[in-house]
Design a protein around this nucleic acid. Structure first.
Length: 281
DNA sequence: AGTATCCTGGAA
DNA sequence: TTCCAGGATACT
């Protein structure tokens, strides 16, 4: 699930907690989700944490990095060490909202000097990967939409080269990195663009460019979206709040916030797309 | 450009 | 029982 705003929120919260801590032990419960030999990064110290598109990058002393992709249902939850879990690593500990960790979806546990990170992922699409060089995973990605590299000129240029529906186009990580299914719909509503419009037929690229930045910044401000089933929660175990501000996503049948027309849901490339047929042309 | 696939569970 | 879900890739 997590898209740029959720991954950015996760990165910011984790940063405050884990930088400077030593990785003591990695426990893998879901083998296919961990790529590399965990022993090679045990006893290394976390130097920093960053984000590229939807990938979290944890930098370690001596060079290696731990890359993490949450895919649809991944969560990274952090718990400080308490008297309860001091003795037994991986032993269930009480957590926010009456939950216990590890839970059924916990696939990987990283024990740090002063706490633990739980990687939970119901659908098991997410992964962690040890690498010396993140180029392989990031070189194909387009610019970060909130960076200076993402200019109006660039957007116009890539739009002109594609006939794909603009909704599918926005999900293409090679063009712009970090937008996912929630925010693609939100962005197009704010832009007043029908999601089926071929990319090269988009008239107001400037409006689209502004809307991409606006929506992503607003979603970061609200710490991401925890839609329906809490597939996404923040490292502190609590949900984000952008779902309380959805313009069209998951609003099928609800009145459009601008004109009261019922919001429609259609499939574009197998993915639900929400829009107002009156406001978006 | 489309479709199938990795997985699990909740809702219709 | 079928459909649906914040992602991305490997195929035809």
């Amino acid at each position: 699930m997590p898209e740029l705003p959720e991954v950015e929120t996760t990165k910011r919260q984790l940063e405050k907690k884990i930088v400077g801590q030593k990785i003591e032990k990695i426990k893998i419960l879901s083998a296919k989700q961990f790529i590399g030999n965990p022993k090679t990064i045990e006893n290394l110290v976390i130097k920093g944490i960053s984000r590229r598109a939807k990938i979290i990058i944890i930098q370690l002393t001596k060079g290696p990095m731990l890359l993490i992709h949450l895919k649809m249902t991944g969560q990274l939850v952090y718990a400080d060490k308490t008297k309860n879990d001091k003795a037994v690593f991986g032993h269930p500990i009480p957590f926010a909202g009456g939950k216990t960790l590890p839970g059924k979806a916990t696939g990987i546990i990283i024990r740090l000097s002063r706490g633990q990170i739980f990687f939970n992922d119901l659908r098991k699409f997410g992964w962690m990967k040890i690498t010396q060089n993140s180029d392989q995973e990031t070189k194909h990605l387009g610019p970060e939409p909130l960076s200076k590299q993402f200019t109006l000129t660039y957007l116009k240029e890539i739009l002109s080269k594609s006939k794909r529906p603009i909704k599918a186009f926005l999900l293409d990580q090679n063009k712009i990195a970090g937008i996912g299914n929630i925010y693609a719909s939100e962005i197009l509503f704010l832009s007043g663009i029908d999601p089926r419009t071929p990319a090269n037929k988009v008239k107001d690229a400037k409006k689209l460019h502004q809307s991409i930045k606006k929506i992503l910044l607003k979603a970061i401000k609200y710490q991401g979206s925890s839609a329906a089933d809490e597939a996404y929660i923040k490292p502190d175990g609590t949900p984000g709040k952008y779902q309380n501000h959805f313009l069209v996503y998951q609003q099928e049948g609800q009145p459009c916030k601008k004109c009261k027309t019922k919001i429609k849901r259609i499939k574009i490339n197998q993915r639900s797309s929400y829009f107002c047929s009156r406001c978006q042309k």
